[in-house]
Design a protein around this nucleic acid. Structure first.
Lengths: 241, 241
DNA sequence: CAAGTTAGTGTACGACTGTTCACTAAGTAT
DNA sequence: ATACTTAGTGAACAGTCGTACACTAACTTG
């Protein structure tokens, strides 16, 4: 029924080499190199858009393709859907999260400097991997259920890991597992609130070594207070029911 | 330049009287009654869609109009944009929030039953005004900046109100204002986490008076624990820097 | 070198969006 | 009864979206 379309004249074949987010010209590359290059360009493009305040919900396949300097149809050579791309980003971002936990765990162990140190680590990680945190924060309330549940689950897992770390502290030796989970959950949620707040101020690039005026250090101070308050309650906790 | 369009034959003028969310047939009403009726239908339609898991970002003007049983253009007779409609919903929802705070404040005053009571009030309010809370939760991370900042500001205000309430407690008599704000903020954010969690389980209508199995009561228990832990820290808090 | 595979292209489609416009029926005021 | 006002209509617009398709240049394999 359908006629032959595209009788195909003699227009230039590859006219658009003006993509903004691609790196240097690809030149001649092996096919698999070429493949991985655009794949990464798509992931990067998505991550950058996300960091620029565009939520995942309004981030369309076409936008990503455009930002990666590629035609929409080419997207499908790498991902079946935006959801699939997002799930890759989840793994990538979760790795950042775990690295943060590891750094906090392995650092020196002054007993009460611990909280201040943790907040410092949080702040520096958000600063250095802003795109990952922005993605996580955004994906938490995405309208894509698979994505949302996946990320929430990863956060639950993260809290669980923290709980087992906490179990090693002498003060927490005989807490029940449920109570430890509760404590870890409270810590994690408090930090998520902090992350959200930090991401709210767009640039954050104007901190001059010190912590003057900067909105981020304000948030850091507030968060440290909160965590210190919570920690203060630990010795007097009785499980009760 | 533009020709006269719509030569206008003789088709039936008002053919679609099959809207689902409109109440009984409007019949003959005064013009202002009619106006307010559809206005409310638009607000209700939006609120219902929101409660059905459609985020504000994907909630289009056309969807709202359709659900309200009205043609898209009619929307503009009542709101200049979806943002304007949303801001009306903010006010409406904030009223629910204040009512909740009032109820918690005015209730009887057993000194340590207070937290349990507050959580009860929270749960019952979320159950009874689910749509408002769903809207607030959603609007907090909307991509519309005006809406997002408005709602975040209202929440900050809410926390501030709670702080002045807390100031009346003898234990908190000589806390600094900043510390009170910190404490109130921690309480409020903990409750927001609880609200998010409650809204995650879709129905919640199947609670059988008691608190068996129900996901909501699980969340309530967890939240109560968190708040109790925080409260426990209060007596030993020293401001420090 | 020849044949095969494949990453990326260009075009088209149907669906949905916000916004505009001329219009009309019905309620209101004179 | 007349003229005025207005809530709601229906059609059209320009734009974006996801997806499908035939195609080709370039790399890879034999």
């Amino acid at each position: 029924m359908s006629v032959n379309r595209r009788t195909h004249g003699s227009k230039p074949r590859h006219p658009n080499r003006n993509a903004s987010s691609r790196a240097a010209a690809p030149a001649r590359r092996s096919q698999s190199e070429r493949r991985q290059h655009t794949r990464q360009a798509l992931l990067d493009a998505a991550l950058n858009q996300l960091a620029d305040g565009i939520s995942f919900d309004q981030l369309s396949l076409r936008r990503v393709a455009r930002a990666a300097g590629v035609v929409p149809a080419a997207f499908y050579r790498h991902f079946a859907s935006m959801e699939e791309l997002a799930l890759v980003l989840v793994q990538e971002s979760v790795r950042t999260l775990r690295a943060m936990l590891r750094e906090a765990r392995e650092g020196g162990l002054p007993p009460e400097r611990m909280i201040a140190r943790s907040v410092e680590i949080l702040v520096s990680h958000v600063r250095e991997h802003r795109r990952h945190f922005a993605f996580i924060a955004d994906a938490r309330s995405s309208s894509n259920m698979v994505l949302r549940h996946t990320i929430r689950n990863e956060i639950r897992l993260f809290a669980s890991e923290l709980a087992t770390d906490l179990a090693r502290f002498p003060v927490l030796r005989d807490w029940t597992t449920a109570d430890l989970q509760m404590l870890a959950g409270l810590f994690v949620d408090t930090m998520i609130v902090a992350i959200d707040a930090m991401l709210e101020s767009p640039a954050s690039a104007l901190s001059i070594a010190g912590d003057a005026g900067d909105a981020t250090s304000e948030i850091a101070a507030q968060t440290e207070k909160r965590l210190r308050l919570i920690a203060l309650a630990v010795p007097s906790w009785r499980s009760q029911a």
